[in-house]
Every structure is written in C-alpha cells, then in structure tokens.
Design a protein around this nucleic acid. Structure first.
Lengths: 185, 185
DNA sequence: CCTTATGGCTATGGAGATTAGCCACGCCCT
DNA sequence: AGGGCGTGGCTAATCTCCATAGCCATAAGG
C-alpha cells in the first residue's frame, strides 16, 4: 500500500475544497479524510485536530483575501480604492460563501490568526489613510467599513436577501453611502 | 418519581437560558435535558429534535426583538426612529450575543420562520416609509440598514472589535452615515 | 375506581472526534 | 546495494452526542 504523501497544506487544501463543494457544515474530519484518501486518524499526523484545522483554514482564507485586495487595489486611491475594496470583498464572498463564513469575526484574539488578521485589517486602514484619516478617526471609519462589508456579504452569501430586486444596485448604494461619509477635502 | 411537567415552551426557555449562559456552541440536547432535569430522549416528546429546537428558538428570538422594536419606537418617526431602531438592535445583540448569533440570516426561506421574519422585516420597512420610500427604493434602503446593523452587531457581539477606542462613537457615526443617505425633503 | 393518553425512562445504534499503539514504506547513509 | 530508522498511515477503542424504539407509570377524566 503506497503512502498517500499528505502534508498539512494538502489537508487544508482538501478541507477548503470540501467546504466549497458541500458547505461549511460539511466540514468534518471524516469527510476530509475521505477526500484525501486516508483514514480519519491519519489526519492527526498533519493537523492537531478539527479546531486547529479551522484556524489553518482561516489563515489561508484571510491571506487569499488580502492577496485579492492588494492585486485589485494597485494604482487606485480615494473613492476608487474604497469602491474597489468593497466590490472585491463582495465578489469573494459570493464566489466562496463557505470560505467567507469560515472567517472568524475576531481574528485578533487568537495568536495563530492575529498576524493574518492584522495584515487584512491593514489593507482597510491603508485605503482610508488616503483621506487623511489617522488615529482614532481611522479606527472608527475602518470599523464602519468593516461592519458594512461584512454585514452585506454575510447576508448575501447566506441567501438572506430574499426579494428579487437587483442586489448590485443595493451594493452600489451602500458604497456611495460610505464614500459620502468620508472627508472630501 | 413525579413528572417534570415539561412543555415545548419550557424546553425552548431552557435552551435560550443555556445559550445565554454558555454560548451558542454549548447548545446540545444533552445539556438542555440536564437543565430541564430530564433524560435526553424525553425531549423528543416536546421538540422534534435539535434542528427543530433551533428554529423554535429563532422564532422566539425574532419575536422578542420585534417586541423590543415596537416598544422602543412608539411615538417616534424619521431620523429619531431610525436611530432608535439601530440602537435597540445593537443593545439587544450586546445583551444577548448568543441569541443574536442564533438568528438565521435567511428566515424567509424557512416556512417555520417566515412569519416571524416577515414581522421583523416589517418594522424596518415601516420606519423607512416615513421618508416616502416605497417599492424598490424602500427595498434597497432596508437592505442597507439591515446589512449595517447586522454587520456591526455581529462583529461587536463576537468581540471582533479589538481596539480600545470607544464603540459607542463608532456606532453613532454609523447611524449618522445611514441617516445622511436617506432623502430629507 | 379505573381507564387511557402521554410524559418520562432505559436500551440501542450510528456518526464523529480523538487517543493509543502498531507496522511498513522509503529516504538517507554508508 | 543494503540496512536503519523516522514518520506516515492503519486498526482498535473510547467518548460524546443525536436519534429511535419500546416499556411503564403517572395523572387526568369519566
């Protein structure tokens, strides 16, 4: 019987594929084991358990999101950057609803997530620095932005906006609302 | 051995107490059984199972929230009503983080939740009707409001705003942001 | 009184996480 | 090429929890 040749990264990959396919609730070590062609206990050679697998997944997701942001934001600033950030976040949540749901709301509380969480947060802060927001004002504005994008994406990804009216329109309205609240020299 | 004299409502009460005490993750039929002084299988005489217990809890929570809104909103309209709605929602989520987290993002999709969800949604719509918003515009504004309050409350209730800056200030800023986006004659 | 619907119990089984302990694959070194 | 050994994978076993089945006694109503 040849070895499967697994690694921590491969397990995380399989877990992410799994939730993409079957939803966050389907995340179970048994299912990951099956997907990697291995018996469940064997996974413990690569990850500490279900809890640790979740945090490893969260790190990967936050890194992926940060990467998307930085790619999308090159050469942009001001209102353009804010709108791009919001649209990119929304697109990610729609494309990968399970990954979005797998992101912990409080990454800074867990040492294993703090670094990836801080890098993600830094993108938000950087975009707002373009408005001359510093210190406390920057914190408040970042929180507002975070609440808005997270709230909209959560509800949309969960299919919570039942009515047929165009969601793009709602989202653009939300973007304008936030931009209007920022200081424009 | 005298009977415990349980009822569906009592089971839901115990479950709500349980998550208030020990968090949403602690919701387990075994724990509810212990709290009601009954063996776990006995709960099936009153609720269909864990899934149905969750929806019964969600109904209760949405009703409770609707009740709070209608009480807080009597005699208010316009910006005052919007601000009150947002503050009331936030207060509820802070006081009962687990109950807030137990609310499904898509109540209208489940027949058992649709009625309570629609009544809750109606409060939002009613507040915005005061601005002359009707039809599609009312839908978009309601979605924006919902995204904002849900996003902020989720992050705050989860302890996701790590920094020490005053959260009241952030929330008031969010209120102003939304109010400013509404049509003022 | 006594009948009976029903609330509660024990027994059982199945999924899933996790631990313990074994074994063989296959890399690395000579 | 041969051998050692680190390590990845396995089976067995335990624990928790949901869920179902079937028994029994309580307590309400005639």
């Amino acid at each position: 019987m040849p070895r499967a040749g697994l690694s921590t990264a491969a397990v995380v990959d399989a877990a992410l594929d799994l939730i993409d396919d079957r939803g966050l609730d389907a995340l179970t070590l048994a299912a990951v084991a099956e997907r990697t062609g291995v018996a469940a206990p064997s996974l413990y050679k690569h990850v500490g358990g279900l809890a640790q697998l979740r945090t490893l997944m969260a790190v990967r997701i936050m890194e992926e999101l940060t990467e998307r942001f930085t790619t999308a934001l090159v050469g942009r600033s001001g209102d353009d950057a804010v709108a791009t950030l919001m649209r990119t976040y929304r697109r990610y949540a729609v494309e990968h609803p399970a990954r979005h749901a797998a992101m912990p709301p409080d990454p800074l509380h867990d040492p294993a997530l703090a670094s990836a969480g801080a890098r993600l947060l830094e993108v938000f802060l950087a975009v707002l620095r373009g408005y001359g927001l510093e210190g406390e004002a920057a914190i408040h504005a970042t929180r507002c932005l975070r609440a808005i994008v997270h709230g909209f994406a959560s509800i949309e990804a969960a299919g919570g906006f039942g009515l047929p009216e165009d969601l793009d329109t709602t989202h653009e309205q939300l973007i304008q609302m936030f931009i209007a609240s920022l200081p424009h020299t």
